[in-house]
């Protein structure tokens, strides 16, 4: 059994080697131009705004969005096994899955109507 993992290990080794090689070679081989923007915070390009009160914690609104995301995201776990084999399972499984998605939509309707999706 263990021999079947050898290609995988080999592949992982090549991947790691490539990543290390790229990082090492860039400062040596690449041209060097000074640019202020490159030293700034990653991704946004503009300086961060002043920290919020209490040490710049993530706004609580963020949690609501995150929670809603988790719950709807995880429900889709059941779609994967269904999608793999739905042609073999016929109408019964299709009806079950439609019912399941309807159930999720009921929850969605509640969240939407009661303002759970509004940012402000």
């Amino acid at each position: 059994m263990s021999h079947s993992y050898v290609p995988l290990l080999f592949f992982a080794g090549i991947g790691a080697a490539f990543a290390v090689f790229s990082v090492m070679i860039a400062p040596i081989a690449g041209p060097r131009h000074y640019n202020r923007a490159k030293l700034d915070a990653y991704e946004c390009g503009i300086n961060p705004t002043p920290q919020a009160e209490g040490g710049g914690k993530v706004p609580i609104k963020y949690y609501i969005t995150a929670m809603l995301f988790i719950v709807f995201d995880i429900e889709s776990v059941f779609l994967y096994p269904f999608a793999v084999a739905f042609d073999k399972m016929g109408l019964f499984a299709l009806v079950e899955m439609v019912l399941f998605i309807l159930t999720v939509f009921v929850a969605y309707a509640y969240v939407w109507r009661r303002g759970g999706l509004e940012w402000d």
């Binding site: 309707a109 509640y110 109507r113 009661r114």
Partner: peptide, 10 residues
């Protein structure tokens, strides 16, 4: 319970 949630929504 599901109908109850819909009542809450609408």
């Amino acid at each position: 319970a599901m109908i109850g949630v819909l009542i809450e929504a609408f």
